[in-house]
Design a protein around this nucleic acid. Structure first.
Length: 723
DNA sequence: AGCACGCCGACT
DNA sequence: GTCGGCGTGCTC
């Protein structure tokens, strides 16, 4: 068989490599096709390159080529190929995770064409006769100016049919309307630091450069993004903005829409219907959208005129995908910027240590916003309340209650942050020591008093609240510790006049819940917000005078080496909520360890100093970012099987003295949803050798995985965020 | 991941 | 006697 008769096809299967099919007439790389694979019809994508068929395999033909849309662009295929290599994930599966659902299916699809209509030269010269009144009305409307479908339908219900006819006769056509991005007026004046940041990044437009924009809360990072995007749009280019899930709020989108009236902004997030997502994606791909703003998945969106990538809150863990292709959107954004030859701007008040290290090493260039954009706004004063010396009522110390009651008297909004939802983190029997462990996970079931249930926050298992200890029958069982619900009711009892609004995953589950929250807060109907880190991120509640943080000490001495970094980052952000827009703010942190360097650094608002401390610790311990890590995970109903699987892998992968391997050991969450989890931690200071080890492990994993059977699942996680 | 093929229990 | 349970094996 001639080589030209074969193509390599990428398929959405968890198998390494491409598959070879016969093809009568050549198709461009990136074409979506339908093929038969193992007895089922699959969507495939024509790949670059030729592996040739495995010997002795009879090739099947490509059944059909989908042509409603152009072939996928090379830039997307390159990025997916890179992601597959870097994250050690099958190439086909990697590409398909980058596609909208509708393009993964073995069907030819295209979003509806919504471009406006206009008359062609010929159409202009051929007005319909006056007695064809509907046609004449349509013609007259179009002769005046181009028209959208909606407007034409209003002129005549026949519009769709008539226009299709005219299009066929070359009398009318759809066209890409030039967009006029109106310069918004009344722009806030930039601080010197903001202006310097804008100028620096603007000077790098047109080539690759990674920028780390470190700006304290309220310093106006978003304004820097907006100014740069304005420049990009003025050049007729496109910008990509990647934000964490929780930051993609209607507030943010509205701010962009207000600033760039007339521009087409494509929003990509998980709540979009398949058709909407496809349409936004194709609009970006075809250059009809000027700005793409979305969660981690949007990093893959094809953009033919891309000129700038922004990753906001670049430290946020939700930028990392936790299953399938375990990519980090920030890192892929940097790769993409390099590939496309454009600058990438990573913004955060509390950058990840990885990014700090990259800036220290000169790979990223630093920009700092150290002052708040409103001249009057000062950084809040941080006070540490030592709970070893304080009497606690439902977890609240007297200074905290006093401060809240003071703010209440002054009619100022306060925020109480506690990173635990539910009523109490555990139910316990003081007589026999029983605690409410989850039967499926190595975790505690949380007391939810309102729903009268115990619920595991890891697997979702829910059981009715027992009236007595299941072990000894003692009726005096008690909720231990505090969650948002308990705090809400405790505050209600201590400050009966206060209007309290609780915000956590339980209260904001409904779709329009946030609208109600904003309405109530801005109408001044709330005195105290109680909630989890949802309160810390993305949502602006205006002037807060007091922020209280409770129950944070767990992050100080955790088994997870990143816990301190995360806690510091969250506290910096939650503290940053205080004292905006001219109101002097105060932050109270209740802790048993007021002398801990983390809290001391927080009190000084000293991110840089604490980051250096943490980086030194990481260097000492050989942890990231001083070394690179990967995880090989295995889980099975039987823990011994998972460990044996990993042990078997170790026996078959050649040692590299530069690569340190730890394990098999139980994962931090050793048991999850009824499965025992074991893992290998692979560490190396040289990325290339880490990848070489993983590449050697891949085929062995595939084989051992097959032999171990269905009960065992395994995965590779490069640059894991959680161990 | 699917979906086939293939060997053991309760039904027309 | 079949319909169908889901155990393992392969897919260009």
């Amino acid at each position: 068989m001639n080589d030209t008769d074969c193509v390599e096809v990428l398929l959405d299967v968890p198998l390494q490599g491409t598959f070879t099919y016969r093809l009568a007439t050549p198709l461009p790389v990136g074409t979506r096709v339908r093929v038969n694979f193992g007895g089922r019809e699959l969507c495939g994508v024509i790949a670059n390159g030729m592996n040739g068929p495995a010997p002795g395999v009879k090739l099947k033909p490509v059944a059909e080529a989908y042509t409603a849309l152009p072939p996928l662009p090379g830039s997307l295929l390159r990025m997916a190929a890179f992601a597959a290599r870097y994250y050690h994930h099958p190439a086909g599966a990697a590409l398909f995770t980058a596609l909208p659902t509708l393009l993964r299916q073995p069907r030819d699809v295209a979003p509806p064409d919504r471009r406006p209509w206009r008359l062609t030269e010929a159409g202009r010269l051929a007005p319909p006769p006056p007695r064809q009144r509907a046609r004449l009305a349509l013609w007259q409307a179009l002769a005046g100016s181009p028209q959208e479908d909606d407007a034409l339908r209003a002129v005549s219900p026949q519009a769709a049919r008539v226009l299709a006819e005219w299009a066929g006769q070359g009398l009318a056509e759809r066209f890409d309307a030039p967009r006029e991005v109106k310069a918004a007026d009344g722009l806030p004046e930039l601080t010197g630091e903001q202006a310097a940041a804008v100028d620096a990044v603007a000077a790098s437009l047109g080539r690759y450069q990674a920028w780390l924009l470190q700006g304290v809360t309220g310093s106006g990072k978003t304004e820097v993004y907006l100014r740069l995007i304005a420049r990009v749009l003025a050049e007729g280019r496109q910008a990509l903005v990647v934000v964490p899930e929780i930051s993609l709020t209607p507030q943010l989108i509205e701010r962009f829409a207000r600033r760039f009236a007339g521009a087409r902004i494509a929003c990509l997030h998980s709540h979009l219907a398949d058709g909407e997502r496809l349409e936004a994606w194709v609009d970006a791909w075809q250059g009809r959208a000027d700005i793409v703003i979305g969660t981690r998945l949007s990093v893959f969106t094809p953009l033919p005129r891309l000129a700038l990538i922004v990753v906001d809150e670049e430290h946020d863990a939700s930028l990392k995908q936790h299953d399938g292709l375990r990519y980090h959107a920030r890192d892929l954004a940097v790769w993409r910027a390099h590939d496309a030859g454009v600058p990438v701007l990573l913004g955060s008040a509390t950058p990840s240590l990885e990014s700090v290290a990259n800036a220290d090493a000169g790979r990223y260039r630093r920009l700092a916003l150290t002052r708040r954009a409103h001249a009057a706004a000062r950084l809040p004063a941080v006070r540490l309340i030592d709970t070893r010396r304080a009497e606690l009522t439902d977890g609240l110390s007297a200074p905290v209650v006093d401060a809240l009651s003071g703010a209440l008297a002054r009619r100022e909004l306060s925020l109480v942050y506690i990173n635990r939802r539910g009523y109490a983190p555990v139910l316990a029997c003081p007589q026999c020591g029983w605690t409410s462990g989850c039967p499926h996970c190595s975790a505690r079931q949380v007391v939810h008093l309102q729903a009268r249930v115990l619920r595991c926050h890891h697997c979702g298992d829910t059981e009715p609240l027992p009236r007595a200890c299941p072990d000894c029958g003692n009726a005096d069982i008690r909720p231990l510790g505090e969650g948002t619900q308990r705090l809400e009711s405790a505050l209600g009892a201590l400050l009966p006049k206060a209007r309290i609004l609780r915000i956590d995953r339980d209260t904001t589950a409904r779709k329009d819940a946030w609208d109600a929250v904003y309405r109530r807060v801005s109408a001044g109907e709330v005195d105290i917000l109680v909630g989890t880190q949802m309160l810390a991120k993305g949502h602006d509640f205006g002037a807060l005078s007091l922020v209280v943080a409770l129950g944070c000490d767990g992050g100080l001495y955790s088994a997870d080496f990143r816990a301190g970094e995360r806690l510091f980052s969250t506290l910096m952000q939650v503290a940053g909520r205080a004292g905006r827009a001219g109101v002097a703010g105060e932050v109270l942190v209740q802790t048993q360890w007021p002398d801990h360097p983390l809290y001391q650094a927080l009190a000084r608002h000293d991110f840089d100093g604490y980051a250096e401390t943490l980086l030194a610790e990481r260097r000492e311990a050989g942890f990231p970012p001083s070394a690179h890590q990967a995880l090989v995970r295995a889980d099975a109903p039987d823990g011994a099987a998972a460990a044996a699987f990993l042990q078997g892998l170790l026996a078959l992968v050649a040692d590299d003295p530069a690569v340190r391997v730890f394990g098999p050991a139980p994962a931090l969450m050793a048991r999850l949803a009824g499965r025992e989890r074991a893992q290998l931690v692979i560490e190396c200071t040289e990325r290339a050798r880490l990848h070489a080890w993983l590449s050697a492990a891949e085929p062995v994993l595939a084989r051992l995985g097959r032999e171990a059977g269905r009960a065992l699942r395994w995965s590779i996680d490069v640059d894991p965020l959680e161990l």
